[in-house]
Design a protein around this nucleic acid. Structure first.
Length: 263
DNA sequence: AGCGAGCCCTGTATGC
DNA sequence: TGCATACAGGGCTCGC
């Protein structure tokens, strides 16, 4: 689940339940052998501090404060954040647990172990080090077009390229292309200005829409692709049916009838 | 530059 | 029920 809107939802959980509470301990959870997590010294840096601020850049989440340490989190393919109380017990697949004074807890969960957590001085240094592009929701139409400029490859790969713009992954790239009527393998130079502007409008609308429902997919409009990412399902925009191809090595669901590749 | 392949590790769904 | 296989929303590295 962890693309921009899902990560935004995890950030909201922290804001709603874990801010302005003094951190007592940061401990490892279960089965952490293959998970990249802060060592004892870095974990200890958080003790006595509070998270007063949560920031998200693309798919990266940061919790910290103006004067204290920052915790950077990346969800990988299946990670999530949960805020709960000690008496509820730690959630499954909890890899890192932040214990605040009282009983409040925050866990980084990651069944597939592709995610990570680390100590960072500031979010900015981490964003810079990873060469992330601007957050997808911070781009206006011109900015969006500028970030795609110069690309010669498939539009879907560019939308998912975190150094061009940060936050869009496989799901919402497919959704954006579906709603714009553009084939995922279309080369960028073949797109018109209107195509690019349409992609910007769609991605903005989609990402905000998913944020608005806290990434609860069932609350999204019935006509969206998200509800029919299966080969053979009926398209909601024409009488085509959903197909799957590989673009940039990733499964891409689309409607071959209304998402036609330029000749 | 951009692409595909391979890889990281594990849960879930499917087919036999 | 058990077992094998394919697949999953991310991202890194390598070689062409």
């Amino acid at each position: 689940m962890p693309e921009l809107p899902e990560v935004e939802a995890y950030g909201r959980r922290i804001k709603d339940g874990a801010l302005h509470r003094t951190i007592e301990t940061v401990t490892l959870g279960n089965d952490t052998k293959h998970v990249e997590l802060p060592g004892p010294e870095d974990r200890a840096r958080f003790e006595g501090h509070q998270f007063t601020e949560v920031r998200r850049h693309g798919k990266y989440l940061f919790a910290g404060s103006a004067t204290g340490p920052w915790m950077a989190l990346h969800m990988g393919m299946a990670g999530s954040v949960r805020v709960y109380d000690a008496e509820d017990g730690n959630p499954d697949y909890a890899r890192l647990i932040v214990a605040f004074e009282g009983s409040r807890r925050m866990a980084f969960r990651d069944p597939r172990k592709f995610g990570w957590v680390k100590y960072v001085d500031t979010p900015e240094t981490e964003i810079e080090a990873r060469e992330l592009g601007p957050d997808a929701l911070d781009l206006d139409a011109d900015g969006f077009a500028n970030r795609l400029e110069g690309g010669r490859g498939a539009i879907k790969s560019a939308l998912m390229d975190q150094s061009r713009l940060a936050g869009i992954g496989n799901l919402w790239a497919d959704e954006t292309l579906y709603q714009t009527g553009i084939h995922p393998a279309t080369k960028i130079p073949e797109l018109s200005r209107d195509d690019i502007s349409g992609l910007h409008k769609a991605s903005d609308r989609i990402l905000r829409g998913v944020c608005d429902v806290d990434a609860h997919y069932r609350e999204l409009p019935d006509a969206w692709l998200i509800h029919r990412r299966e080969e053979g399902y009926a398209c909601t925009r024409c009488d085509g049916s959903i197909a799957r191809i590989k673009v940039g090595g990733r499964s891409s669901y689309f409607c071959p009838k209304h998402q036609v590749e330029a000749a």
